[in-house]
Design a binder for these strands. Structure first.
Lengths: 128, 128, 128, 128
DNA sequence: GTGGTCTAGACCACT
DNA sequence: GTGGTCTAGACCACG
């Protein structure tokens, strides 16, 4: 079914970890448009967290346009509305790339090492 | 002297923005080993934030081994101790790369676009 | 016959969308006093929703005095009983107008733009 | 200070009523860019609701870009970024106008009556 | 002091 | 059964 696990004692809030898991699964194709997500209660039991926490994750994903929810029915992967706003998106992604590269630098990682990691990761997600 | 500016109303805590600015300047070579950082009071006035906030940033940077503070003298950029612990660092950076690539995906960015951004950013920081 | 369509994944509950469609058709004259509405089963099949949902919509419309249902016969558009209670109605409509105008304001719409939209819409419904 | 009151037993969720009050006050100019909103706890005490409910309202207003919040500092009325997306906004407002006019029709209100109400309300908000 | 996250548990609305 | 709202109360992060 789903094989999601939380990182315990992470600084990352639980609801964000959940968002991240789902976004990842969509990005790598394990979840597709129209697929039904587990119900809030089911997932809460599975991950052993409070249903409100799952609800929070789903609701944030919904406002990002990544899933849709309907009372009495459930939550579903949204049709991909690539509502790409070039300028904003570029600036968000540039900022994130900046951070990770600076972090790698200060962790003593070499240029070729981070490039290798980047290539590896991008293959996972942007499969041909 | 220094030309740092805070992003107003960013979700990023102020002390982290300050850490980020300093790490960036070190990474691109604007700050080098042994350089003296502005005093807490000076920087607090300049950025119009509480001195405690600067102190927090400096203390975290010291904890990361990026700067050293000497009682009564000030804070200095540390000699680059590449305290690179391969496994941990790789996992941190992989996690961060994953996040940014997934985010780019969901923002509708194409593979070549994010690759271009990555190349651009890595040139800034890892100059030959 | 009828050409009603639901907005998929709308935040608006399905039964309310159905009520809205019917009220709209009455208001613009596509449905008149005495006209028979589609049966619950028929409409449920057509819209691909649970018959209970249609039943709920019809029952609410009946409560509002807009349709009447006769056992075993079906649902019909009621004779227009203008059960207008000045004070209550005014307060409901004022509240709704307030909301839409405030919303328009925060969406950056100009005064003349919303006035134009209002005039357009009111022509649709209150034809001379 | 602030003179907000909740409607008891309203179908409108409390957090939405709170959002509405704040949007209204901004629209009519009682609150201006940069003004500080009451703290979550203060407002919760004042309105006799749970702090989480206020937090929810503030957080939704933030994602609509109407206010900004900072941990440890408070919530402030945002600079008006009229990030007006013509098509989307027009469609939202048209939908809302449609509903209110249909509702007025079914409540037996005359054309001139609703026009009068509209004019009255729009004067409140879009003052010259 | 501020807002942010999370839990436990209740009740409601919708299909 | 589904998701949505709300409360009470705890603990953390930030300035």
């Amino acid at each position: 079914m789903f094989i999601w696990k939380l990182v315990e004692h992470s600084a990352e809030p639980i609801y964000r970890q959940i968002m991240q898991m789902i976004k990842y699964d969509i990005a790598v194709g394990r979840l597709s448009t129209g697929d039904r997500l587990p119900s809030i209660r089911t997932l809460a039991l599975h991950l052993k967290v409070n249903p409100n926490t799952i609800a929070r994750a789903y609701s944030e994903l919904e406002r990002e346009g990544i899933i849709v929810t309907r009372q009495g029915s459930g939550a579903y992967v949204a049709r991909v509305i690539s509502r790409f706003k070039t300028r904003e998106s570029r600036s968000i992604i540039k900022e994130m790339l900046s951070k990770v590269i600076i972090e790698a630098y200060h962790l003593g990682m070499r240029k070729d090492e981070i490039i290798a990691l980047f290539k590896e990761k991008i293959q996972d997600i942007y499969r041909q």
